[in-house]
Structures are given as C-alpha cells and as structure tokens.
Amino acid sequence: MACVTESGKISEQTKKLLLLLRDTISPADVLAETLDAPFFKIRASLRQMKEAGFIHETEQGYTITNKGLEVLHLQDA
C-alpha cells in the first residue's frame, strides 16, 4: 500500500485520493466512505501520502499540496 510503487509511479489508491483531495478538503472517514474502502486502509494511505509531502492535514481534513498536484500531473502526462 506504499503510495509510490517501485517503478516510481503513484499507486491507484493514492491517485484516487489525490484526485478527490484536488477538488475538496476531506476528513479520512468521508474519504473512506466515498471510496468504499476500509477506514484503516485510508488512514494508512493518508499517513504515507502526508509523509511523502503529497497532502497536508488541516482542521477540516486533508488537502492536496503543490507536490501532490505535481505528481498527479506527471501521472497523467
């Protein structure tokens, strides 16, 4: 469940979360419900994405960073 695979690409789960967080600030439970994924898996992904600098946490929830937007752009390129 690492947010970046060995080939340097972001994982599918990371991509889904970044796409959601590009458009809105969301807490972990809302993201889990939106993606119909277990809460613990979303928390683990968010933790790793935060450590990688792709997202940051605010009082309202998680939001994408410039680095997150960059990797999302590179993924689509």
Binding site: M1, F39, F40, K41, R43, A44, R47, Q48
Partner: peptide, 13 residues
C-alpha cells in the same frame, strides 16, 4: 498482506 500498517491506523474502529 495489505501493505505497511500501524496499529494506530485502526484508531476509531
């Protein structure tokens, strides 16, 4: 088998 997990990832459940 589902990636690297911490026990704290389960907080809330």
């Amino acid at each position: 088998t589902h990636g690297t997990l911490r026990l704290s990832d389960y907080a809330g459940s």
